[in-house]
Amino acid sequence: MLQLVDFVVRNRFFLVFVLLEVLSVWLIVRNNTYWGATYFNTSNYYVAKTLAFSNSVRDYTKLNEINADLANENAHLHAQVARLSQTNAAQSPAGYVPDSAFAARFTYTVAKVVDNETNKANNVITIDKGTAHGIKAGMGVISATGVVGKVRFCSEHYSVITSILHSNFMVSSKLVRSKEIGYAKWDGKDPNLIDMIDVSKYTKVYKGDSAVTSDQNSVFPPNIMVGRVETVAVNPNQTFYNITLRLATDFRNLSYVYVVQNHQLVEQENLKLRTIEPKK
Protein backbone atom coordinates (compact mmCIF):
# COMPACT_ATOMS: atom_id res chain seq x y z
CA MET A 1 0.00 0.00 0.00
CA LEU A 2 2.80 2.41 0.90
CA GLN A 3 4.47 1.65 -2.45
CA LEU A 4 1.25 2.58 -4.29
CA VAL A 5 0.99 5.87 -2.38
CA ASP A 6 4.62 6.59 -3.07
CA PHE A 7 4.09 5.89 -6.78
CA VAL A 8 1.12 8.29 -6.97
CA VAL A 9 3.04 11.03 -5.12
CA ARG A 10 6.08 10.69 -7.37
CA ASN A 11 4.02 10.70 -10.57
CA ARG A 12 1.23 13.03 -9.51
CA PHE A 13 1.92 15.61 -12.24
CA PHE A 14 1.92 13.01 -14.98
CA LEU A 15 -1.25 11.38 -13.65
CA VAL A 16 -3.02 14.76 -13.47
CA PHE A 17 -1.92 15.42 -17.05
CA VAL A 18 -3.34 12.09 -18.25
CA LEU A 19 -6.58 12.71 -16.35
CA LEU A 20 -6.99 16.15 -17.93
CA GLU A 21 -6.28 14.73 -21.40
CA VAL A 22 -8.95 12.07 -20.95
CA LEU A 23 -11.39 14.70 -19.65
CA SER A 24 -10.63 16.94 -22.65
CA VAL A 25 -11.22 14.13 -25.13
CA TRP A 26 -14.48 13.22 -23.41
CA LEU A 27 -15.70 16.81 -23.55
CA ILE A 28 -14.80 17.12 -27.24
CA VAL A 29 -16.59 13.88 -28.12
CA ARG A 30 -19.57 14.79 -25.98
CA ASN A 31 -20.06 18.29 -27.36
CA ASN A 32 -18.87 17.97 -30.98
CA THR A 33 -21.04 15.99 -33.43
CA TYR A 34 -18.26 15.28 -35.94
CA TRP A 35 -15.71 14.05 -33.39
CA GLY A 36 -18.43 12.14 -31.55
CA ALA A 37 -19.38 10.25 -34.71
CA THR A 38 -15.72 9.61 -35.54
CA TYR A 39 -15.06 8.27 -32.05
CA PHE A 40 -18.01 5.90 -32.07
CA ASN A 41 -17.27 4.62 -35.59
CA THR A 42 -13.65 3.98 -34.66
CA SER A 43 -14.51 2.35 -31.36
CA ASN A 44 -17.13 0.14 -33.05
CA TYR A 45 -14.55 -0.91 -35.65
CA TYR A 46 -12.02 -2.01 -33.04
CA VAL A 47 -14.69 -3.66 -30.89
CA ALA A 48 -15.83 -5.63 -33.95
CA LYS A 49 -12.23 -6.62 -34.69
CA THR A 50 -11.76 -7.77 -31.11
CA LEU A 51 -14.98 -9.80 -31.17
CA ALA A 52 -14.02 -11.37 -34.50
CA PHE A 53 -10.61 -12.37 -33.12
CA SER A 54 -12.26 -13.77 -29.99
CA ASN A 55 -14.70 -15.82 -32.10
CA SER A 56 -11.84 -17.09 -34.26
CA VAL A 57 -9.95 -18.28 -31.18
CA ARG A 58 -13.07 -19.98 -29.82
CA ASP A 59 -13.77 -21.67 -33.18
CA TYR A 60 -10.15 -22.84 -33.40
CA THR A 61 -10.40 -24.54 -30.00
CA LYS A 62 -13.44 -26.44 -31.28
CA LEU A 63 -11.86 -27.68 -34.52
CA ASN A 64 -11.30 -31.20 -33.18
CA GLU A 65 -14.95 -31.47 -32.20
CA ILE A 66 -16.08 -30.05 -35.56
CA ASN A 67 -13.81 -32.43 -37.50
CA ALA A 68 -15.11 -35.41 -35.52
CA ASP A 69 -18.72 -34.42 -36.29
CA LEU A 70 -17.91 -34.05 -39.99
CA ALA A 71 -16.17 -37.43 -40.03
CA ASN A 72 -19.24 -39.11 -38.50
CA GLU A 73 -21.48 -37.41 -41.02
CA ASN A 74 -19.20 -38.52 -43.87
CA ALA A 75 -19.36 -42.12 -42.63
CA HIS A 76 -23.15 -41.98 -42.78
CA LEU A 77 -23.04 -40.51 -46.29
CA HIS A 78 -20.54 -43.14 -47.47
CA ALA A 79 -22.94 -45.87 -46.37
CA GLN A 80 -25.81 -44.21 -48.26
CA VAL A 81 -23.75 -43.72 -51.43
CA ALA A 82 -22.54 -47.35 -51.39
CA ARG A 83 -26.11 -48.60 -50.97
CA LEU A 84 -27.51 -46.36 -53.72
CA SER A 85 -24.70 -47.19 -56.15
CA GLN A 86 -25.51 -50.89 -55.78
CA THR A 87 -29.26 -50.40 -55.98
CA ASN A 88 -29.15 -48.10 -59.03
CA ALA A 89 -25.97 -49.25 -60.80
CA ALA A 90 -25.85 -47.58 -64.21
CA GLN A 91 -24.11 -50.56 -65.83
CA SER A 92 -26.64 -53.11 -64.55
CA PRO A 93 -28.64 -54.90 -67.25
CA ALA A 94 -32.35 -54.26 -67.57
CA GLY A 95 -34.38 -56.23 -65.07
CA TYR A 96 -31.54 -56.74 -62.60
CA VAL A 97 -32.64 -56.06 -59.03
CA PRO A 98 -29.87 -56.46 -56.41
CA ASP A 99 -30.62 -58.11 -53.10
CA SER A 100 -31.25 -55.44 -50.45
CA ALA A 101 -28.83 -57.12 -48.03
CA PHE A 102 -26.13 -57.11 -50.70
CA ALA A 103 -26.68 -53.41 -51.45
CA ALA A 104 -26.43 -52.50 -47.76
CA ARG A 105 -23.56 -54.83 -46.85
CA PHE A 106 -21.01 -52.08 -46.11
CA THR A 107 -20.91 -50.11 -42.85
CA TYR A 108 -18.32 -47.58 -41.69
CA THR A 109 -16.50 -46.82 -38.44
CA VAL A 110 -14.78 -43.45 -38.00
CA ALA A 111 -11.24 -43.53 -36.60
CA LYS A 112 -8.53 -40.96 -35.96
CA VAL A 113 -5.00 -41.43 -37.29
CA VAL A 114 -2.48 -41.45 -34.43
CA ASP A 115 0.61 -42.46 -36.42
CA ASN A 116 1.30 -42.32 -40.15
CA GLU A 117 4.29 -43.28 -42.30
CA THR A 118 4.91 -42.09 -45.86
CA ASN A 119 8.71 -42.24 -46.33
CA LYS A 120 9.34 -46.00 -46.22
CA ALA A 121 9.02 -48.75 -48.79
CA ASN A 122 6.38 -50.46 -46.64
CA ASN A 123 4.31 -47.88 -44.79
CA VAL A 124 1.73 -48.51 -42.09
CA ILE A 125 -0.83 -46.33 -40.32
CA THR A 126 -2.07 -46.59 -36.73
CA ILE A 127 -5.61 -45.61 -35.77
CA ASP A 128 -7.35 -45.20 -32.41
CA LYS A 129 -9.99 -47.94 -32.89
CA GLY A 130 -9.57 -51.66 -32.28
CA THR A 131 -11.42 -54.86 -31.45
CA ALA A 132 -13.41 -53.06 -28.75
CA HIS A 133 -14.99 -51.02 -31.58
CA GLY A 134 -15.66 -53.98 -33.88
CA ILE A 135 -12.51 -53.58 -36.00
CA LYS A 136 -11.02 -56.78 -37.42
CA ALA A 137 -8.02 -57.68 -39.55
CA GLY A 138 -8.77 -57.62 -43.26
CA MET A 139 -11.20 -54.70 -43.23
CA GLY A 140 -10.74 -51.99 -45.83
CA VAL A 141 -9.89 -48.41 -44.88
CA ILE A 142 -10.75 -45.28 -46.85
CA SER A 143 -10.59 -41.52 -46.31
CA ALA A 144 -12.98 -38.76 -47.33
CA THR A 145 -11.10 -38.58 -50.65
CA GLY A 146 -10.10 -42.15 -51.51
CA VAL A 147 -8.57 -45.53 -50.67
CA VAL A 148 -6.17 -45.69 -47.70
CA GLY A 149 -5.37 -49.38 -47.08
CA LYS A 150 -6.42 -52.49 -45.20
CA VAL A 151 -6.40 -53.41 -41.49
CA ARG A 152 -3.45 -55.66 -40.74
CA PHE A 153 -3.88 -56.43 -37.04
CA CYS A 154 -5.67 -55.00 -34.01
CA SER A 155 -5.40 -54.61 -30.27
CA GLU A 156 -8.32 -53.67 -28.06
CA HIS A 157 -8.10 -49.94 -28.74
CA TYR A 158 -5.74 -49.59 -31.72
CA SER A 159 -5.30 -51.01 -35.20
CA VAL A 160 -2.41 -51.04 -37.66
CA ILE A 161 -3.26 -50.51 -41.31
CA THR A 162 -1.24 -51.67 -44.30
CA SER A 163 -1.18 -48.45 -46.29
CA ILE A 164 -1.71 -48.36 -50.05
CA LEU A 165 1.85 -46.97 -49.90
CA HIS A 166 3.11 -50.50 -49.23
CA SER A 167 4.99 -52.66 -51.75
CA ASN A 168 2.82 -55.71 -51.02
CA PHE A 169 -0.56 -53.98 -51.23
CA MET A 170 -2.72 -54.01 -54.37
CA VAL A 171 -6.30 -52.91 -54.93
CA SER A 172 -8.50 -53.86 -57.87
CA SER A 173 -9.22 -50.62 -59.75
CA LYS A 174 -11.28 -49.54 -62.74
CA LEU A 175 -10.79 -46.65 -65.16
CA VAL A 176 -14.09 -44.77 -65.33
CA ARG A 177 -14.06 -43.83 -69.04
CA SER A 178 -12.59 -46.96 -70.58
CA LYS A 179 -14.11 -49.39 -68.00
CA GLU A 180 -10.79 -51.29 -67.98
CA ILE A 181 -9.89 -53.10 -64.75
CA GLY A 182 -6.35 -53.40 -63.37
CA TYR A 183 -4.50 -53.19 -60.08
CA ALA A 184 -3.13 -50.15 -58.27
CA LYS A 185 0.29 -50.93 -56.77
CA TRP A 186 2.86 -48.56 -55.26
CA ASP A 187 6.42 -48.62 -56.60
CA GLY A 188 7.92 -47.42 -53.29
CA LYS A 189 8.99 -43.97 -54.52
CA ASP A 190 6.70 -40.92 -54.57
CA PRO A 191 3.89 -41.03 -51.91
CA ASN A 192 1.71 -38.98 -54.27
CA LEU A 193 1.90 -41.41 -57.21
CA ILE A 194 0.97 -45.05 -57.72
CA ASP A 195 1.18 -47.43 -60.68
CA MET A 196 -1.82 -49.07 -62.30
CA ILE A 197 -0.85 -52.40 -63.81
CA ASP A 198 -2.46 -55.10 -66.02
CA VAL A 199 -4.43 -52.66 -68.20
CA SER A 200 -4.46 -53.87 -71.80
CA LYS A 201 -2.81 -51.56 -74.33
CA TYR A 202 -5.52 -52.45 -76.88
CA THR A 203 -8.00 -50.11 -75.20
CA LYS A 204 -8.02 -46.32 -75.02
CA VAL A 205 -6.74 -44.74 -71.79
CA TYR A 206 -7.31 -41.03 -71.20
CA LYS A 207 -5.00 -38.77 -69.23
CA GLY A 208 -6.91 -37.29 -66.29
CA ASP A 209 -9.36 -40.21 -66.17
CA SER A 210 -10.44 -41.35 -62.70
CA ALA A 211 -9.43 -44.72 -61.30
CA VAL A 212 -11.89 -46.10 -58.74
CA THR A 213 -12.29 -49.36 -56.85
CA SER A 214 -13.86 -51.98 -59.08
CA ASP A 215 -16.91 -54.15 -58.42
CA GLN A 216 -14.58 -57.17 -58.25
CA ASN A 217 -13.61 -56.29 -54.71
CA SER A 218 -14.86 -57.74 -51.44
CA VAL A 219 -12.94 -55.38 -49.15
CA PHE A 220 -13.76 -51.94 -50.58
CA PRO A 221 -17.10 -50.62 -51.81
CA PRO A 222 -17.14 -49.97 -55.57
CA ASN A 223 -16.39 -46.52 -57.02
CA ILE A 224 -14.12 -45.29 -54.21
CA MET A 225 -11.49 -42.98 -55.70
CA VAL A 226 -7.96 -44.32 -56.04
CA GLY A 227 -6.45 -41.58 -58.18
CA ARG A 228 -6.35 -39.88 -61.58
CA VAL A 229 -4.28 -40.87 -64.60
CA GLU A 230 -1.08 -38.79 -64.58
CA THR A 231 0.94 -40.47 -67.33
CA VAL A 232 0.35 -43.24 -69.87
CA ALA A 233 3.14 -45.08 -71.69
CA VAL A 234 3.37 -48.18 -73.85
CA ASN A 235 6.25 -50.62 -73.93
CA PRO A 236 6.44 -52.23 -77.40
CA ASN A 237 7.48 -55.53 -75.84
CA GLN A 238 4.50 -55.70 -73.48
CA THR A 239 0.75 -56.04 -73.89
CA PHE A 240 -0.06 -53.71 -70.98
CA TYR A 241 0.13 -49.96 -70.41
CA ASN A 242 2.52 -48.36 -67.95
CA ILE A 243 0.03 -46.09 -66.15
CA THR A 244 0.82 -43.73 -63.29
CA LEU A 245 -1.97 -42.40 -61.07
CA ARG A 246 -1.89 -39.35 -58.84
CA LEU A 247 -3.37 -40.57 -55.57
CA ALA A 248 -6.66 -39.03 -54.48
CA THR A 249 -5.67 -39.19 -50.80
CA ASP A 250 -3.05 -36.84 -49.38
CA PHE A 251 -1.32 -39.20 -46.95
CA ARG A 252 0.86 -36.48 -45.43
CA ASN A 253 -2.26 -34.72 -44.08
CA LEU A 254 -4.37 -37.72 -43.14
CA SER A 255 -6.40 -37.10 -39.95
CA TYR A 256 -9.55 -39.23 -40.03
CA VAL A 257 -10.29 -42.50 -41.83
CA TYR A 258 -13.28 -44.82 -42.24
CA VAL A 259 -12.92 -48.53 -41.57
CA VAL A 260 -15.17 -50.46 -43.95
CA GLN A 261 -16.91 -53.61 -42.80
CA ASN A 262 -18.37 -55.95 -45.42
CA HIS A 263 -20.98 -57.94 -43.50
CA GLN A 264 -21.04 -60.60 -46.21
CA LEU A 265 -17.26 -61.01 -46.49
CA VAL A 266 -17.11 -64.21 -44.40
CA GLU A 267 -19.86 -65.78 -46.50
CA GLN A 268 -18.01 -64.85 -49.71
CA GLU A 269 -14.65 -66.17 -48.48
CA ASN A 270 -16.13 -69.43 -47.16
CA LEU A 271 -17.83 -70.04 -50.49
CA LYS A 272 -14.55 -69.46 -52.37
CA LEU A 273 -12.78 -71.94 -50.10
CA ARG A 274 -15.14 -74.65 -51.31
CA THR A 275 -13.74 -74.24 -54.83
CA ILE A 276 -10.24 -75.21 -53.67
CA GLU A 277 -9.70 -78.91 -54.26
CA PRO A 278 -8.00 -80.73 -51.38
CA LYS A 279 -4.54 -82.11 -52.04
CA LYS A 280 -4.37 -85.82 -52.65
Rank of each mutant, 00 (worst) to 15 (best):
S43F: 15
S143F: 07
A75W: 04
L27S: 07
N74P: 01
M225G: 00
P191F: 04
I197V: 10
G140D: 06
A101P: 01
S167A: 10
N88L: 15
N44G: 10
L254S: 07
Q216I: 06
L20A: 15
N67M: 07
K129F: 03
Q86I: 02
V25L: 15
I28K: 04
P98H: 09
L77G: 02
T42Q: 13
K279Q: 10
F106H: 09
D128N: 14
K272R: 14
S255R: 10
A89K: 10
T275C: 04
I276C: 05
R105H: 12
A48S: 11
V147G: 03
E230D: 09
S218R: 10
I127L: 05
S214K: 03
R177I: 10
S163W: 08
N11L: 03
G227H: 02
Y45I: 12
T118G: 06
N242Y: 05
V113P: 04
A121V: 08
K185I: 00
Q216H: 11
V232Q: 02
L84V: 01
S163A: 07
I164L: 06
V18W: 11
Q261P: 02
K185G: 00
V8F: 11
Y45S: 14
I164P: 00
W186Q: 00
V226S: 02
A144G: 11
Q261E: 14
E21R: 12
